[in-house]
Design a protein around this nucleic acid. Structure first.
Lengths: 379, 379
DNA sequence: CGCTCTATCTTCGATATCGAAGGAAGTAGA
DNA sequence: TCTACTTCCTTCGATATCGAAGATAGAGCG
């Protein structure tokens, strides 16, 4: 019977379930190696999880020179999660299984300026629709989550100091959703969700920066495998002052902010001044592909500026990976000039094994990130 | 009998000992609250630690409305640590108890250019002297550690890519010390040790940046209460490019590095060009105190430049605290202009509860940091 | 001053986990 | 093809930890 109920696991069971759900372990032996529990303890707990219908055995794994392991999988009936990636004018909805695999994804129009109550109630209705139409029968909902296009205080689940989101400041998004769902609830900044989602595509990398080069400029940070939130604004580099010959006042009121020069919106405005009109910043990629000189030049300059800001951060943080996403990421000169700026000015030790590359997780990065963080909340 | 032996504790015992040694807990009830163990488990393990001579009961604590707790202390005979803060021309030696409290501190001349074998053998001899002359009788040495004025690979304990340290690149410092001491060994960058030491003076702050404004410019980073090492060069901001009207080539070969303008050495050179000769960068503080205009102006400019670099990092990292140490920290205009630059250009959310202040831990910050990290190594 | 409630710590049976040993089923080499 | 070794997983007694109950000694209030 489909419904909503919290996952009935405790302590070590939750740790083991997480290892299987995240794809890190597929056998009892792997669970023992990764969890630190003795093989006997793993065996007992796995039996309990199987009895609870949360894990299943499915075929055999590969021999490592001895007996083949019995492969463990998350049971399809273990549960589902509903997650949203809320933007200013759209929302991407996902129904995921507990391992974060999308079962259904929908894109819908939305309007953040309608205010939090209206938007969140609409979102909850959309979640319910998604469940009714796509959830496998009898599989319970275990948690709900949403990304917000503004900073979120991690302690309270409230939006703090957003721009261009009237009515949202200090709104208790998490509590509002909890009033409707007696389940674990996740509320997180969208750039942070994207960073968590992207990190899953870089196994072995513990320290990442995930850049979003789109209409605006955002950045999510993963430190030692965990999302770094700071006070809810960590990673925000859009208002860093850049070196430039001219001087532009940013919408925030300061001069020479990075996003006043290097964001998609800024590039679109600069192209318009050069007589080239496009509908949306993503169209710049096509212009660059067509070798329109003004577009390529502007993208290179933007890449250089972003790269110069990143050099400070790379020296400071020593990340393993800088993944560049967002609608401008497909413009190859952007990443090339980011690389040039970073490799030229950074300490060799800091860049020796640094990889600067296009993001791998695609459009569902934020949903996947939401699923990963929500799994932690439900276990 | 004085000697050298590893701490004989396992699992939960080590966790509890650490809580007492770091001053976080003074009673069984506090240990239960902080460790997550049941009160009965704590009682059993504390009994074992008392029987092993590692913890003692000492008087009573304050009642919280019920029975007074029995106060627990680290036993003075639990052990000692020897730690060094190695600089280019000096070394600061410390004999600490397991809680990191200095029992003896000595300052000695040293010469890093003598090469690693000579310096480290001399250091080990100095450690042995310190033990013989200052260790309480019968208290065993439990670990040794040293700070290095260059980047250290956390995985191997080797120096990587140091400047002005001939012979040290790739030298296995940790292994060299382990050949002499069959005990836990710590090797770490000196700015990182200072950061860990300083963090202890800011209870409640989980994310700190500890700036060292001295002859050079260094920075250590603590994320979620733990030192962030990156690849061994995390926090290095001295070669970040700054905005300036002039153009100076740094010793590293790049132009306009922060340390070419804002380090104590750079300020000393600029003062010499203005006809003001000082012996060492620390003398700048006296000039500022005496209101020498050239000195004050240079320090303000340095503070502004450092502050501008810090704005990028504050937006990115959202620290709770920026502590400024090093020989120039006592120049009040330095911190004032750092604050001005940061508060002017940073996101309000990022600076709302940020504290920018002089470092609190004093000259022994690196030794205290070494003691804290070494305690983790021996437990 | 006596009573009630709170906090600390101990005792003890129940439960979780460990560690050693062993069974089952692989691989590799002679 | 057989043997030896490796790997996976289970069994079982030992050990660690939990949770409930109780003893002890405080504080606070009538």
């Amino acid at each position: 019977m489909s419904g909503k109920e919290r996952l009935p696991v405790t302590g070590a069971q939750g740790d083991l379930l997480r290892l299987v759900a995240t794809g890190q372990a597929e056998s009892r032996a792997e669970l023992a190696r990764l969890s630190g529990l003795a093989a006997s303890s793993v065996s007992l707990r796995v039996e309990e999880l199987r009895d609870a219908g949360l894990l299943v055995e499915e075929g055999s794994g590969t021999s490592r020179g001895g007996r083949r392991p019995r492969r463990l999988r998350l049971s399809p009936s273990a549960g589902v999660l509903t997650v949203a990636d809320l933007g200013a004018h759209h929302v991407r909805l996902g129904l995921l299984d507990l391992s974060g695999t999308p079962l259904a994804v929908q894109e819908r129009e939305a309007d953040i300026t309608a205010g939090p109550e209206a938007v969140l109630d609409w979102l909850a209705d959309a979640f319910d629709d998604l469940l009714e139409t796509h959830a496998p029968p009898g599989v319970p909902l275990r948690g709900v989550g949403t990304g917000i296009p503004g900073p979120v205080d991690p302690a309270t689940g409230r939006v703090v100091g957003p721009s261009r989101m009237p009515g949202w400041n200090n709104f208790p998004v998490a509590d509002h959703l909890r009033a409707r769902y007696d389940l674990p609830v996740l509320v997180e900044n969208d750039a942070n969700l994207m960073a968590v989602g992207e990190a899953r595509s870089w196994p072995g990398a513990d320290n990442l920066m995930v850049l979003k080069a789109g209409t605006g400029i955002g950045c999510g940070v993963v430190v030692n495998g965990r999302l770094h939130r700071g006070r809810g604004a960590a990673g925000d580099i859009s208002h860093v002052r850049v070196r430039t010959d001219s001087s532009i006042v940013c919408a925030c009121g300061h001069r020479d902010c990075l996003e006043a020069y290097a964001s998609g919106a800024a590039l679109q405005a600069a192209l318009a001044e050069a007589g080239i009109t496009i509908e949306r910043p993503a169209d710049i990629v096509g212009l660059v592909d067509d070798a329109v000189p003004e577009a390529t030049s502007l993208v290179r300059t933007a890449g250089r500026m972003i790269g110069e800001v990143l050099t400070v951060l790379v020296n400071f943080f020593n990340p393993d990976v800088i993944a560049v996403g967002g609608s401008l990421a497909a413009a190859e000169p952007l990443i090339a000039s980011i690389r040039a700026a970073v490799y030229e000015r950074c300490l060799p030790l800091a860049t020796r094994e640094l990889e600067i590359a296009p993001a791998r997780a695609g459009q569902d990065a934020a949903l996947l990130g939401g699923g990963a963080l929500l799994l932690d909340a439900v276990l």
